[in-house]
Computed example of a mutant assay.
Amino acid sequence: MRIEIKSFDALSPAELYALLRLRSEIFVVEQQCLYLDQDGKDALALHVLGWKGRELCAYCRVFRPGDYFEEASIGRVAVPTEFRGNGYGARLMEFTLKAISEEMGPCPIAISAQAYLQRFYEELGFKPEGELYKEDGIPHLRMVFTAD
């Protein structure tokens, strides 16, 4: 898997289409959740794209502290069903955590994790904070990564 990180303005139309399609495929269609994915925050984000050949096989977006949460944050983590089970999600997240550290220095990183993925994020070093809550009808948990 080849991973790259780009600002919104650096994305090509084909890359933007691929990431929006992937997010809709997973968060709207697969999870049967009607919500507006295009939340007006993509222009603030850094976009992390994992490619297997010409196929987008992993994606997430990153925000600097204060742009989404008080802390730096990662969201919209997505791996298409046909690429799951290959470790692409973990590799993407490890790359992203390192990129945040290099770009922003050591800082806390917050996520709003879907509850069923709690163990996945804990294995990457995230720790749960607070109680479960519903976001767009799906149970979520706030989790924070702090570089030790």
Rank of each mutant, 00 (worst) to 15 (best):
Y88P: 03
M93L: 15
G66W: 08
Q32D: 14
I111Y: 10
L49F: 12
Q118T: 14
L124P: 06
Y133P: 01
I100E: 04
I111K: 06
G53E: 12
T81E: 13
Q32E: 15
T81P: 01
L22Q: 10
D136S: 12
P13F: 13
A78S: 13
G85N: 11
I138Q: 06
P65C: 07
A58G: 15
C107E: 09
V144Q: 04
D67M: 11
Q31M: 13
R91T: 05
L36D: 13
R91V: 03
V144F: 07
S73Q: 03
H140D: 00
R54L: 06
I100C: 07
L44K: 15
E82G: 07
G89K: 08
G66P: 08
Y17D: 10
R76Y: 01
L124W: 09
K41L: 15
E131D: 15
Y88A: 03
C57T: 13
Y116N: 06
E103M: 12
A18W: 10
F126I: 04
A90I: 03
I100S: 04
A72E: 06
M104Q: 14
L56V: 07
M104A: 11
L124C: 07
L19A: 05
D148T: 09
V48N: 04
E103A: 13
V28Y: 08
G130E: 07
E135P: 02
A43F: 11
R23C: 02
E30N: 13
A115Y: 01
A99T: 11
E30Y: 14
E135H: 14
G130T: 03
I74A: 04
P128Q: 10
L19N: 11
A99I: 00
I109R: 05
S7Q: 14
E70K: 10
E70W: 02
E103N: 07
C57D: 09
G53T: 07
F126Y: 14
L46D: 07
G75C: 08
L11Q: 10
Q114M: 08
L46P: 00
Q118M: 11
E122N: 05
I26P: 05
A43N: 11
K41M: 08
G50C: 13
I138W: 09
L56T: 07
R23G: 01
E103F: 06
D39E: 11
F83G: 02
A45D: 03
C107Y: 09
F27A: 02
M104L: 15
A90G: 12
A14C: 03
R61E: 05
G105F: 12
D67C: 06
D67T: 01
I74K: 05
L97W: 08
L19T: 08
E102N: 12
Y17F: 15
P128L: 08
S73T: 02
A58M: 07
L19F: 15
G50H: 09
K6P: 04
L44D: 15
A78P: 02
F83K: 09
F8R: 06
G75W: 04
A14Q: 14
F8T: 02
R2P: 01
F63Y: 14
F63C: 00
R61H: 08
R64N: 01
E82K: 12
S73M: 03
L132P: 01
F145S: 00
E135V: 02
A78W: 04
L56M: 12
R23T: 00
A147Q: 14
E71Y: 00
I138P: 05
I109F: 08
A99E: 14
R142I: 04
